[in-house]
């Protein structure tokens, strides 16, 4: 783990510049796909913080995605709060919930933790359907168009959405990189490798895992808010569904966990596949995209579990001088 200063990283700067130029060259449907890639990339970075760096496999990130999405919608529909503030409300709310749930759920290890996160996601989904008055129930909420303005984050064209998403993406990437190269990241790595040994060197498991869980929740919430703003319609089955949790897991896994570009790369590969599947076969049956996902998941777990970025970096890694 060599300390990098991300702002001095040439690849990142190039990415930044190219990224800002994208809407000039890409328009229409392709731009929509680019926006979706960014959206799911952000969610995957969020998942990566707890399940990649943190090593705790979460199948319930959909809960925080939903909190972000519903916060934006409810904030506006019930309280007239503009979207920008709604995003922040979502983030704060997610952090608080993550703190509370974390105290309970993070005591568990391995499959127990995963099962619990699954249960949490399902519980939230049930609650969202139950409290119909507030959330619109199973039918969901749609976001009425108000005006083309910055603070309400509604635009007649797509490209402002792109830039909004891009800013969020940069935040997510920087967060991920900072974690990886910090003491906090080293603590998480220790916990990942051996909990007992980590404790024996003075690392507080609960506090460290909790921090990761909260950060993951905040980033996921951000992506959920973005989803609500861009898609204009949300419902519990979609934004709080188990399928969503699986999707972001797969994206991060395919791209490569704990890497700077992995989650984005994973999204760049899987989202177009989803779009293509939906475009050609969506009218026949639903479930085809998830079917494709599941096949990819099985394949990746069996043959490529480190993810694309890690596989490539091993191919081109410099041999380390060893003296035994």
């Amino acid at each position: 783990m060599i300390r990098e200063n991300i702002l001095k990283d040439r690849t990142f700067l190039i990415f930044l510049i190219l990224g800002l130029m994208v809407p000039f060259f890409i328009k229409g449907y392709a731009l929509k796909v680019a926006i979706m890639i960014i959206l799911w990339g952000i969610a995957a970075y969020g998942w990566d913080v707890i399940s990649g760096h943190g090593g705790q496999l979460s199948l319930g990130q959909a809960a925080f995605f939903a909190i972000g999405a519903y916060s934006v919608n409810i904030a506006y529909l019930s309280f007239g709060i503009p979207s920008l503030i709604g995003i922040i409300i979502g983030i704060v709310f997610s952090a608080i919930i993550a703190l509370a749930i974390g105290l309970v759920v993070l005591r568990l290890r391995g499959p127990y933790f995963t099962l619990c996160t699954l249960a949490v996601g399902e519980i939230l989904r049930t609650l969202l359907i139950y409290f119909k008055g507030f959330t619109g129930g199973a039918v969901g909420l749609s976001f009425p168009y108000q005006e083309h303005s910055f603070i309400s984050m509604q635009y007649t064209y797509d490209y402002p959405y792109y830039y909004l998403g891009f800013v969020m993406l940069i935040i997510a990437i920087i967060t991920s990189t900072v974690i990886k190269n910090s003491s906090f990241g080293l603590k998480l790595a220790a916990i990942r490798n051996d909990c007992d040994a980590a404790e024996s060197v003075g690392i507080n498991l609960m506090m460290t895992k909790s921090k990761a869980f909260i950060i993951a929740a905040m980033i996921t919430s951000m992506s959920g808010s973005f989803y609500a703003i861009f898609m204009n319609y949300i419902d519990p089955g979609t934004v709080c569904g188990f399928g969503l949790s699986v999707q972001i897991l797969l994206i991060a896994l395919v791209g490569g966990r704990r890497t700077k570009w992995g989650p984005l790369l994973g999204a760049a590969i899987l989202i177009p596949i989803t779009e293509l599947t939906n475009a050609y076969f969506g009218h026949i049956r639903s479930g085809l995209p998830m079917l494709v996902y599941s096949i990819i998941l099985i394949f990746v777990v069996l043959y490529a579990s480190e993810g694309i970025v890690n596989i490539f970096s091993k191919r081109f890694a410099k041999p380390i001088k060893e003296e035994i």
Partner: peptide
């Protein structure tokens, strides 16, 4: 193929199988 590994792989593999079954039936 994954039985020698840690729980994580078991979870991910059986998860993939589960989602596969669910969706092949839907399709």
């Amino acid at each position: 193929k994954v039985i020698e590994g840690e729980h994580e792989k078991h979870i991910l593999l059986t998860l993939g199988i589960a989602v596969f079954f669910r969706n092949i039936v839907t399709v």
